[in-house]
Design a protein around this nucleic acid. Structure first.
Ligand SMILES: [Mn+2]
Ligand SMILES: [Mn+2]
Ligand SMILES: [Zn+2]
Ligand SMILES: [Zn+2]
Lengths: 136, 136
DNA sequence: AGCTCACTTGCAACAGGGTTGCAGAATATT
DNA sequence: AATATTCTGCAACCCTGTTGCAAGTGAGCT
């Protein structure tokens, strides 16, 4: 609980109950969350718009990162300390077609790809869909 | 023009001007297109809903495939003959942050990944963002 | 060519996701 | 406690995508 305040403070963010709750939701549920997920978990306490703005703020500050998905965006905690300037994510995301959860596979990073002449890659995003260990 | 009819017929689809126009738009522009792109190109001729339904039909029949994107879905032609049952796509998509175009890199396929025990992968989707040859 | 039936389209209406402006509330600082 | 700054809630709005239904069209057959 004080951990949360530390994290927020560390990113120059004021401590508000909404930010604490959103952050602790990300920490408790381990998987990637959509805005809808958060609204489901916290919707009675906070306005939709506030949750949107909290996500946007967390994104900018490097607290969470986007997770691509074939049916809408999700977000997950940045494990390493990402900053406002630099997100460094080269890990793989796995979406289970059975339980629907999307998870970061933090220690599996995306293999290097030899691109043709002239391409300057900056950012990689690999989503693998299939069945996760819990569901097979 | 007769090529289009052939393709549609080959997928058990009736020939309609909307389907012909959507298909030829995909063929002419080489890059991945969103519904909005198509609406921009053909919107005066067809209703939005019809374009949505055309995309859905083409998807189901294996004429086009989804392209993941951090700001909404796009679609691109399937190069190999995909069917209603089986899409086989393991190629990389590249999105240029300068011109905004997303393209299939058909001959670059996604490198194999060694997943931990218990994961059963079925589908891979790799999006690389950066600057394309035209824009650097 | 004309008939028929199944499929396709346009329209209207709706649901969901996401954004913006602004006034009031809460936070951090003094 | 007073202040400046930031954050929240609300309302309004736009964009994307879906559904139901009636009218229109395509393809196969006579
Ligand atoms: Mn991740
Ligand atoms: Mn492709
Ligand atoms: Zn699962
Ligand atoms: Zn470019």
């Amino acid at each position: 609980m004080d951990q949360l305040r530390e994290t927020l403070k560390g990113h120059q963010l004021r401590t508000t109950t909404c930010r604490e709750d959103v952050l602790s939701t990300f920490i408790n549920k381990k998987n990637a969350l959509s805005h809808g997920d958060l609204e489901g978990a916290l919707g009675e306490n906070y306005d939709r718009v506030t949750i949107y703005r909290t996500l946007k703020t967390f994104l900018e500050k490097g607290i969470i990162h986007k997770v691509l998905d074939d049916e809408g965006l999700r977000y997950a905690l940045c494990s390493h300390n990402c900053s406002e300037e630099k997100h460094h994510h080269d890990h793989i995301h796995f979406k289970c077609s059975a339980c629907g959860e999307t998870n970061c596979l933090e220690n599996l990073h995306i293999p290097a790809v030899q691109l043709p002449e002239g391409y300057h890659p900056e950012n990689f995003n690999l989503l693998i869909q299939g069945v996760c260990p819990k569901c097979n």
